[in-house]
Design a protein around this nucleic acid. Structure first.
Length: 288
DNA sequence: CTTGGGTCCTGTGCGC
DNA sequence: TGCGCACAGGACCCAA
């Protein structure tokens, strides 16, 4: 499920629970997700305090006071469910230190000293967890090749123009390529291309530089709006489960096959076309 | 090197 | 109500 905005929403939901919190129990219910868990993961987490909870692309990074960083990827269906203890939690649950009954696919359960519980649930098991030294975590094989953060300074017009130059693959594919820009997935690529008026089918290297440049602020806007929509309901800790929040009602293209295009003065209809196994939603009239 | 297709896994929703 | 199928927001791996 989660792309950058959802992961960022999850991170913000987890910060009050995990930052500064000591993990007193780590229950690991299976040996792997997409890849094997690191050796003795439960033992290496137990007793550790989370100094900081960061995000890089679609990865959550929990820096521990042990010198290691817990790397978490939610895959397609991963959720972080918060229950029990800590300020702002459900009062009844806080009082009774109650946690919801274990559910199918609850793979990792972390309990904090303050009585909160964070449960990693992932039905499809495309998610991942690993531990790496904090000092070199950016060089971890999962993170090493990832491009600039789209909301950071390194993502700019010059970078995107250079990255697209000579590329024959469709712009849809190029924007999904995490080496070019971090954190975009199928939904926000569809949304950004729709706003930019660029067809997802167009080869990336055959888009005029000015139009490529226009994608930069559009990508920033789409992601920022989605984060704000997720963040607007963060008072409810359940938001930390990574659901799409209210922004899904604001999609203009994604999931709107057959609906009229929302671009002003455009009479087109949103079409769906499968590109390398992924659905692209776009308006063939105003996206060229 | 780039590029496209296959693949991992379970759940859901739809048509019949 | 049951069954089969298409599809789902990611990203690695490999063949060409």
């Amino acid at each position: 499920m989660p792309e950058l905005p959802e992961v960022e929403t999850v991170r913000r939901g987890l910060v009050p629970v995990l930052e500064g919190a000591r993990i007193v129990r780590a229950q690991v219910n299976r040996a792997d997700l997409r890849w094997p868990f690191p050796e003795r993961m439960g033992a290496r987490l137990t007793g550790a305090t989370v100094d900081r909870l960061r995000r890089r692309s679609k990865y959550l990074l929990a820096d521990l006071d042990t010198g290691e960083t817990l790397i978490v990827h939610l895959g397609m269906s991963g959720r972080m469910i918060v229950s029990g203890g800590g300020a702002g939690r459900d009062m009844l649950a806080q009082f009774h230190h109650l946690h919801p009954a274990p559910e199918k696919h609850d793979h990792v359960i972390l309990d904090t000293e303050a009585g909160a519980r964070v449960t990693f649930n992932d039905a499809r098991r495309f998610g991942a967890m690993d531990l790496a030294p904090t000092a070199t975590v950016e060089a971890h094989w999962l993170l090493a090749g990832i491009g600039p953060e789209p909301l950071g300074n390194a993502f700019d017009e010059a970078h995107l123009i250079a990255a697209f130059r000579g590329k024959r693959s469709p712009v849809k594919t190029a924007l999904l390529d995490q080496r070019i820009v971090a954190g975009l997935g199928n939904i926000y690529v569809c949304e950004a291309l729709h706003r930019a008026g660029i067809s997802p089918l167009r080869p990336a290297g055959r888009i005029a530089a000015a139009r490529v440049a226009s994608l930069v602020p559009i990508i920033r806007d789409v992601l920022t709006e989605a984060i704000e929509a997720g963040g607007s309901s963060l008072r409810d800790y359940r938001q930390a489960d990574g659901e799409l929040g209210y922004f899904q009602h604001r999609f203009r293209a994604y999931g709107r096959e057959g609906e009229p295009c929302q671009t002003p003065d455009c009479q087109g209809t949103i079409h769906r076309k499968v590109q390398s196994g992924r659905s692209s939603f776009y308006c063939p009239v105003c996206q060229r």
